[in-house]
């Protein structure tokens, strides 16, 4: 078994190729549930931001998939489908929903908190019977991905691998909401688990998106019951950690991610400016719609 960790000498390109291959393996495994699967996380961000020129190379070994339990059929069971495609539960973390393919590349299956069924606050596995409570993990901030997504062709990065699947991929607004939750929650509860790269991914999304378009999507997400709370919270994270200035936690982290390869000052300033522009645009649209009202107008 080859296990590829963060410290692996494998080049970035090889890691990207291996991660994409694992993503396609998982899409293969969940073919019967294809309509319930939405690609999120770094891979979705790279698929959506191909054209944005930033100094930091794309790099991820993870594949994150959001599962919409409403579209999930009872058969086959998610855990059985994964195992029969040679995925096995991550033996190190022991967390539900964390799978690895035969090459040791992780694939996470996550259910948005709002649809993850009953469970104590400490419960980690989503309760989506008849599927195993160890098949998927509950996660906050993914609700927006169930609303903001459309189908994209996802192809292998290895030229010998001819697989191309047309699957649901989260939109930039949903990806931004999800990343803001990850960063905002860790900033509050586990600052040591903060990764500069997550903040840089937020910068990448903001650079790639048109402010007006993404603001309109945010207003839509806020007005939908399913994603309203998660999106409103994400807006507050954006305000606190980015729009507050170049020295705010998230802005500083995004800049730090480019140390040695790019221009940290420029990134910190830029991400803060873009976050502010987005908040102003959301506030303006909300006032016209009579919808969400930010605390800072």
């Amino acid at each position: 078994m080859n296990t590829i960790g963060a410290d692996s000498p494998l080049a970035h390109e090889d890691l990207l190729v291996a991660a994409r291959s694992a993503l396609l393996d998982a899409l293969d495994a969940l073919e019967a549930h294809r309509d319930a699967v939405i690609v999120i996380g770094a891979q979705a961000i790279y698929l959506r931001t191909k054209s944005s020129l930033v100094a930091l190379a794309e790099a991820t070994k993870d594949s994150d998939l959001a599962i919409d339990p409403r579209a999930l059929s009872d058969d086959p069971k998610v855990e059985e489908a994964m195992r029969s495609a040679h995925f096995y539960p991550n033996p190190v973390s022991g967390n539900p929903g964390e799978w690895m393919n035969s090459a040791g590349i992780p694939v996470d299956l996550m259910v948005p908190e709002a649809l993850a069924g009953p469970g104590r606050a400490s419960a980690r596995g989503a309760r989506i019977p008849p599927h195993s409570r160890r098949a998927t993990r509950r996660a906050s901030g993914l609700e927006a991905a169930l609303i903001d997504n459309d189908r994209l062709e996802v192809a292998a990065l290895d030229t010998n691998d001819k697989r191309v699947y047309r699957v649901r991929v989260a939109g930039l607004a949903a990806l931004l909401v999800a990343k803001l939750h990850k960063l905002g929650e860790r900033a509050a509860t586990a600052p040591r688990r903060l990764h500069d790269k997550d903040a840089h991914d937020i910068y990448r999304i903001l650079v790639a998106s048109d402010t007006g378009t993404i603001a309109a999507k945010f207003v839509e997400l806020v007005s939908d019951d399913m994603s309203s709370a998660a999106t409103a919270q994400a807006i507050e994270y954006l305000r606190e950690h980015f729009a507050a200035g170049a020295k705010a936690t998230g802005s500083a982290m995004a800049g730090r991610a480019e140390e040695g390869v790019g221009d940290p000052d420029f990134v910190s300033q830029s991400v803060s400016i873009l976050a502010d522009e987005l908040l102003v645009a959301i506030d303006k649209l909300s006032r016209n719609d009579g919808g969400y009202e930010g605390t800072d107008s």
């Binding site: 020129l53 650079v207 830029s270």
Partner: peptide, 8 residues
């Protein structure tokens, strides 16, 4: 000046 989305 700063152009947050870059020179392009």
């Amino acid at each position: 000046w700063i152009a947050p989305r870059g020179i392009d």
